[in-house]
Amino acid sequence: MHIILGLLGLLAAIGAIAWRINMARQGAEVVKDVAETAINLPRKMRFQSKAKRKRLSSVEDPREAAAILLLGMARAGGEVTTEHKKTIRAEMERAFDVDAAASEELLARASWYSSNVADPDDLIPRMTDFVAKTAGSEALASLSSMLGSIGAVEGDASADQVAYLRRYQQRAGLS
């Protein structure tokens, strides 16, 4: 009987040691994760800072630039409504020959790119030049009519929207 009790004690001691080793291993993994996070923190913060400052510089698709301009037109009239978004998506589906999912994605990216821009007029020079350089003058003319339809979503375009369209047309060389 005393041999069985001795074996049970030995097994309990081995189990306790194994449990302690496992807990130490888990603790070491947590420390490793914290250290990796601390090491990557400066790089992550630099990227976030750059992303906040230079969102518009990362636009690589003329369709994204056009979507940013369309969203800017809607914002020039005040609050961007559901009707504005619906019309922007419809215009992009028609002009860019994309499906509903792609137009929704383009609108979401355009919203993110331009979310830190306080004045919609700041979008006009950079995005118009980008569209002109990458898609040509035909795209600029098409975009002008798309901007006009966004301005007319809620009846007549507001004075700010008319001014926005005029500045776009001047920048694009359409007026």
Rank of each mutant, 00 (worst) to 15 (best):
L70N: 05
R63V: 03
T87Y: 00
G78F: 04
E83K: 10
V59T: 06
L71P: 00
A38D: 07
T82G: 06
R53G: 11
D33M: 10
Q26A: 12
E64N: 02
A35N: 08
A51S: 13
A65D: 01
S58Y: 14
M92L: 15
E29C: 05
L69P: 00
M23I: 14
K85C: 11
I39T: 12
G77I: 01
I68A: 03
K32M: 10
L70A: 02
A67S: 15
E83R: 12
P62C: 07
L71D: 01
K54P: 00
A90P: 01
M73C: 06
E29A: 08
I88M: 14
M73E: 05
R89L: 04
L56G: 04
A28Y: 09
K54R: 15
E79H: 09
N40T: 02
A35I: 06
F47T: 11
V31H: 06
A67F: 04
I39A: 08
Q26D: 10
L41W: 10
E60Y: 05
L71S: 04
M45C: 02
S57Y: 14
G78D: 07
T81I: 09
G27V: 01
K32E: 14
T87K: 09
Q48E: 14
K85G: 11
P42F: 07
A65C: 09
G77A: 08
T37C: 00
E91G: 05
M45E: 14
V30C: 00
I68M: 05
L69M: 10
Q26M: 12
I68T: 03
E29V: 03
R46C: 04
G27H: 04
I39N: 08
V59E: 05
A66S: 14
E36P: 00
M73Q: 09
K52G: 10
T82P: 00
I39R: 13
Q48R: 13
M73A: 07
A35G: 00
N22L: 11
K86Y: 06
E36S: 03
A76Q: 02
V34K: 12
K86W: 05
R25L: 15
P42E: 08
Q48F: 14
E79R: 10
R55C: 07
A90S: 13
G77N: 03
